[in-house]
Design a binder for these strands. Structure first.
Lengths: 337, 337
DNA sequence: TTGTAGGCGTTATCAA
DNA sequence: TTGATAACGCCTACAA
């Protein structure tokens, strides 16, 4: 039987009211009383029941994050990095972190959000991998439910977000590759209408146009953000009638898959073919050759996004509701060093 | 203002009791009533307040998992895989999943567990990467708090766990490598006293002994479970006075780092030097050459571990409280194919 | 088969 | 500065 506020009050011969206020740091409690209460609470090992407190205060003191999965079994370094950022920042504000898992773009996923919103199980939600027309954004906006996102949407709904300038990043990447003499550049994109995909693709297209290169639709294909997907797509590209001389993966995992495909075909990556990714995951540093990429500091982005959400929850005025981070080009061997 | 059970009851001109029972599937409700209630609830978008329900039933209806991090920024595919397993299984039992992040083997970590236990924030806890003498196991056991683990400890405390036979797996690996003619086999291990490390090392040692090879302490070094750590350790090993002809990484990330190091030194992996890992993460399938490894089905293990915990919570009799899975050797190019 | 009522542990309101 | 008391929204023993 856990210790309740009643037990503490009885022991001190005080009312539960006073105990409650003493512990929550209200000013209208005598200093000596407060000290006695705090000491006794600590001694008895009392912690307020989360459920009761939530019920009464009508706040969950928790935020939620729903991991989008593609297959049941999947491994994406993005998530451990991102989640640890959200977790650390939440802990810093004494908020709990609720996690759920749901396949992207399904009814299940929407239901999961709905449950959290309607059940008031969390005070706010963190979104990642936003889509151009994102039903989650619509749901949360309509419900007036607090959220912050890593990534933008086309709907201009004014929610707080952090994002990197994907378009600029992709342009940097293409220019760099062109400068090294590779002119037939393919792009392996993401499924669905992920905003980051659309933006990176736009950057790719823009940079090609700027270089006065004719766009070639056969060079833009769809992957699934995984290594295996990148591998498959690259294999097909490289074995086609007019293969590309360079491949950009919409994320590093895709690019690493492409790199494996190229090597398997006996193509010297960095020389016969250039390959580059987007994300800056650690695996890319140690691939052979190391992967050229555009780095996004996922952990920091996660903390920042969470901070935007928390500010919204506590009603603080936020200096900046929209943060757009500059992309950072990391040049490594896979594009010719 | 969220919709409460009262709203639904009023709308149907029923008592809240009936609504509650209809939704929770009690048998003493007329079938037609149940249908009306369920339909109306769905239509109104009603979900019971988690807090109220928790308070009343004195259960959190939640389980917790604390991710151990090594650095603030880290990416380990293990976690996304494992967490999605826990998340799916928890959802299947209508349990919430609480997540926290804490650096392994620190006071912070212990405090995080303590908080969850004391505040009854969760009904049970999932543990991974158990250590030989694991303070978390001690804490939870002493408190009589339900938990289940992926991995064993030396303390024989009879808690439910799932594990793979690490020792047998390592023996398989060593035998396979020896059979391919590599005789000077190094082992890059993990920090701390992780049980899986100790067990895999034991298997390695046993297999060498069985082959009547003299153990060489200089061949057993410590990594940090990351790519970078494996890379550094391997570089040192391979550049030493008497370099190994084969390297086993205690996990795949370590092995992939070693693979990068070997390639960088111009050593043909699979020919001049054999490299193998342990885990079966997807990245290994597409490395050059692909990585020989011992596969552990992390997602399934996560679900199973969670199931053991849930069974314990609901007081079901569990057919098997301890599950030891057979290791599966995956032979690929990095050991000579 | 349905309804009434009490209470889970807190916090907030109001009075003392 | 402190205390009595009424919710918060739900579940469940008991009554009808």
């Amino acid at each position: 039987m856990p210790i309740t506020i009643r037990d503490v009050a009885r022991r001190l011969k005080l009312s539960i009211t006073t105990v409650s206020r003493a512990l929550d740091g209200y000013p209208d409690v005598a200093e000596t009383t407060r000290q006695r209460v705090q000491q006794m609470a600590a001694q008895m090992g009392y912690t307020a029941s989360r459920a009761a407190r939530q019920l009464r205060r009508r706040r969950a003191d928790a935020i939620g994050y729903i991991m989008s999965t593609s297959q049941p079994r999947f491994s994406d370094p993005f998530f451990s990095d991102f989640v640890s950022g959200v977790g650390d920042e939440a802990a810093a504000h004494r908020l709990e972190l609720l996690l759920a898992v749901a396949p992207a773009d399904t009814a299940d996923e929407m239901q999961a959000y709905q449950r959290w919103v309607q059940g008031r199980r969390v005070d706010g939600i963190i979104l990642t991998r936003t889509r151009v027309k994102d039903p989650r954004v619509r749901l949360l906006s309509t419900a007036g439910f607090p959220f912050a996102a890593f990534g933008r949407t086309r709907q201009r709904l004014g929610f707080p977000y952090v994002d990197i300038d994907n378009e600029a990043g992709a342009r940097l990447l293409v220019k760099h590759i062109l400068m090294h003499g590779f002119r037939r550049i393919a792009f392996i994109g993401a499924p669905l209408d992920y905003t980051f995909h659309v933006q990176r693709l736009a950057g790719y297209t823009a940079a090609l146009a700027q270089a006065r290169l004719r766009p070639d639709d056969s060079l833009v294909v769809t992957g699934d953000l995984t290594l295996a997907g990148g591998y498959r797509a690259a294999l097909e590209l490289l074995q086609s009638r007019r293969p590309p001389t360079a491949i950009i993966g919409v994320n590093d995992l895709t690019a690493l898959g492409a790199l494996a495909a190229a090597e398997e075909l006996g193509l010297k990556v960095g020389q016969a073919v250039a390959i580059a990714g987007f994300d800056g995951i650690v695996d890319g540093e140690h691939s052979r050759p190391p992967l050229t990429t555009v780095r996004q500091p996922v952990y920091d982005i996660a903390r920042l996004t969470t901070r935007l959400l928390v500010a919204q929850l506590s009603g603080d005025t936020v200096p900046q509701r929209h943060v757009l981070m500059p992309p950072e080009l990391i040049i490594r061997g896979s594009t010719g060093a």
